[in-house]
Design a protein around this nucleic acid. Structure first.
Length: 374
DNA sequence: AAGCCGGGGTA
DNA sequence: TACCCAGGCTT
């Protein structure tokens, strides 16, 4: 157990520091549970500077939960485009509809009720409960884990069940029940600006005198994480079936990256490939389409890479010009090249699309590439 | 409990 | 490069 005097000092020094060290942000000080929820979901695993423009965009387009609930899933996804972790956008939309239709537009007034909503976990439930209604629930995010692990020189791995429970209880013990909103803001601000992952500014820290990691000189070594992310390399060969005007577009299925976003049908290979026609045959076979008498000659228009946390995506964009386009299968549709920008695209495909618009006047236009004629 | 899910910033 | 970011869901 923590000494009571230590707890009191922690609260007092933290709150005093926060009062004199504001970090202005558009969602700070808001009491509207909808806007708080919106901001917190946008900020999940996302830096403040990165999520900022998206929050402004969403707040302007969807001022209330009713506005959001009235939108389509595709419109929400399009506005979310480029931010990543797209399940957040779909859960945001689903929960908005649920709140409007089942809860009369009112968010649950307690932590447990909030926790039941799709896309709201322990962190976001505590954030809404404390910021909107000043309920005494401590937020535990990456900042808080780092501050607590260092303050107590605690090397319990933070990426484990016991570790998570341990630090959550510590945060709840330290939380000032009189000012849960200010306390939560303050401890996250401290982690983001002073108690940083690298080169922590310990000399500026209001908790410096009580910090055990500082005393032991091990602040930069904490917190401890056990799990290492292994990066998988993937080669995605996109086939841009086109007659020069339209292209075949697919809605990506669940169970893989970029679920529910749109891109081109593709074949995945374990190694880089150079034979476009070979890819074409693989693709036709995979979708049980008959091989045309005269196979088109795909042209590799563009290739790009995107490094994600857990995958290295190598994208190859093959231009497949033909008079007769393949039939549309499930989740496939034909759209004009101009209309591609109306769909939510993965960043990598968006990069290709930018290239396509810049160089569309010099695209292969020969009609002798073959005819899809099974 | 472990794996998966994006994109970008920083040392 | 490696690590991390106002985490949550699925298996």
């Amino acid at each position: 157990m923590l000494p009571h005097a230590l707890i009191i000092r922690f609260r007092q020094q933290l709150l005093q520091w926060h009062a004199s060290c504001p970090r202005p942000m558009p969602w700070k000080g808001l009491r509207d549970p909808y806007l708080i929820w919106l901001a917190e979901v946008i900020l999940q695993q996302t830096r403040v500077t990165q999520g900022w423009p998206w929050f402004e965009r969403f707040r302007k387009r969807f001022p209330t939960v009713q506005h959001l609930a009235a939108a389509t899933e595709d419109e929400v996804l399009k506005l979310w485009e480029g931010l990543g972790y797209y399940t957040r956008a779909r859960n945001l939309w689903r929960t908005a509809r649920y709140v409007v239709e089942q809860l009369d537009g009112q968010f649950p007034r307690n932590y447990e009720g909030l926790l039941k909503l799709k896309g709201i976990g322990p962190y976001t439930a505590a954030a809404i409960a404390s910021f909107a209604w000043r309920l005494p629930h401590a937020v535990v995010d990456g900042n808080v884990l780092r501050v607590l692990a260092r303050f107590l020189a605690d090397d319990t791995p933070i990426d484990s069940g016991p570790g998570k429970r341990h630090f959550t209880q510590l945060a709840q013990t330290l939380l000032d029940p009189q000012y849960p909103d200010s306390f939560n803001q303050a401890i996250m601000d401290l982690g983001a600006t002073v108690c940083t992952p690298h080169n922590p500014q310990c000399h500026k820290c209001p908790l410096h005198s009580d910090c055990r990691a500082t005393r032991q000189g091990i602040a930069p070594l904490l917190p401890v994480k056990r799990r290492k992310t292994k990066v998988r390399t993937r080669h995605l060969h996109y086939l841009i079936w086109t007659d020069g005007q339209h292209t075949l577009l697919q809605r990506r299925p669940s169970g893989d990256i970029w679920a529910a976003l749109y891109d081109f049908p593709f074949v995945e290979t374990s190694h880089p490939t150079t034979s476009g026609q070979q890819l074409l045959r693989q693709w036709l076979h995979a979708h049980q389409l008959a091989e045309p008498r005269s196979l088109p000659h795909p042209t590799l228009l563009w290739q790009g890479r995107q490094r994600l946390t857990h995958q290295l995506i190598c994208g190859y964009y093959w231009w497949v010009l033909t008079h007769q386009l393949p039939p549309t299968l499930h989740n496939w549709q034909y759209v004009t090249i101009e209309n591609l920008c109306k769909f939510a695209l993965p960043k990598l495909t968006g990069n290709f699309y930018t290239y396509l618009l810049n160089f569309k006047d010099s695209l292969p236009t020969g009609k002798s590439n073959g005819i899809y004629n099974p």
